[in-house]
Amino acid sequence: MKNKFLLIAIITFCILSCSKGKTIMNREDLAIDKTFKIDPTIKKDTAFKFLNTLPETYNFLDEVIPNAKKSSNVHFNYGKDVEATEHYYSVRNKADAFKKGNDSLIISIGTADGYSGSGINLIIKKDSYSSRYYKFSDMLSYNDKKPQHKTLYQNLILDKAKYNLNDSIYGFINFKSQYIDKRSDTIIVAAKGHFRAKIREAEF
């Protein structure tokens, strides 16, 4: 379990480090909606009724919880020009939520098998948030470059504004970004779907 928290900590640190120190924002950044919306009725969406019929899937080093129901149907599309689409049957990804300090919440939606992984991190601070696609692999090369990420669109809906430890969180994300990987290949990443999780204390 500690290894899993360490992995999430490394990914989150990279995200925060990339954004830290940037005082000049371009027009595209200013156009991104950074305020999440509140809809207390979202937990009644049909998507969650469907997820209740499926068992949870687990990532590498996850603690298996007996009889747990599926946490996410967020679906990822990749390509040169793709749009976000939601599929109820897209149940590969798992959602986790962590509270850090008094006003920070980290939601991680993705998959990892011990060798590679990918997904999206939502970093919520007070009433604003940022979203970042991430991808990692144990296949490294000496000339690999640092991946670059640019959010093109984001829309986040949550069931309430503030959360405490052990609260359940319900949400919906619609996301699109441009991602340049460590080999300098550029792809468009689009994600869309519902998610839920129980909030745990961050150990990183």
Rank of each mutant, 00 (worst) to 15 (best):
N143G: 03
S184L: 11
L152T: 05
V74M: 13
I180Y: 07
T57G: 07
N73R: 08
A68C: 02
S177N: 10
L122K: 01
N59T: 04
A95D: 01
S177H: 09
N93T: 10
T53M: 15
L140G: 13
S71E: 13
G110D: 02
Q154T: 12
V82T: 11
K150Q: 07
N164Y: 08
Y133T: 05
T151I: 09
N102Y: 14
Y129R: 13
K176Y: 09
S131C: 15
L105P: 00
S168N: 03
L156T: 07
I106C: 08
N102C: 08
L105M: 04
L158M: 03
L140W: 15
G171K: 00
D103Q: 06
K145D: 12
H75M: 12
E56S: 14
I123G: 07
D185S: 11
A112L: 10
H87A: 05
S128C: 09
K150F: 11
K150V: 12
D103R: 12
D185L: 14
Q148S: 01
D62A: 12
M139V: 09
S90Y: 08
Y153W: 04
K69Y: 03
Y142G: 01
D138H: 15
S184C: 07
R92H: 09
G171E: 00
A95F: 02
D144Q: 11
Y134H: 13
R92A: 03
I109S: 00
S104L: 12
D96R: 14
Y179A: 03
Y115A: 13
D181Q: 07
S116E: 11
V91C: 10
Y133A: 10
T85D: 10
S118N: 10
D138L: 12
I157M: 03
T151A: 11
S177A: 15
K126T: 11
Y129E: 06
D185W: 08
I169N: 00
F76S: 12
A84F: 01
L156I: 12
V91P: 06
I109N: 01
K99T: 07
N164F: 11
I107C: 02
R183Q: 05
Y142V: 10
K145R: 10
R92G: 04
S72T: 05
T57R: 15
I123L: 14
N77W: 12
F172R: 05
N59D: 11
S184P: 00
L61S: 14
P147K: 04
E56C: 12
D103E: 07
D144W: 13
H149M: 07
K126Q: 09
S130K: 15
K125N: 15
Y153R: 02
Y142P: 02
S116C: 13
I157E: 02
S131P: 14
G114S: 06
H75L: 11
E56L: 13
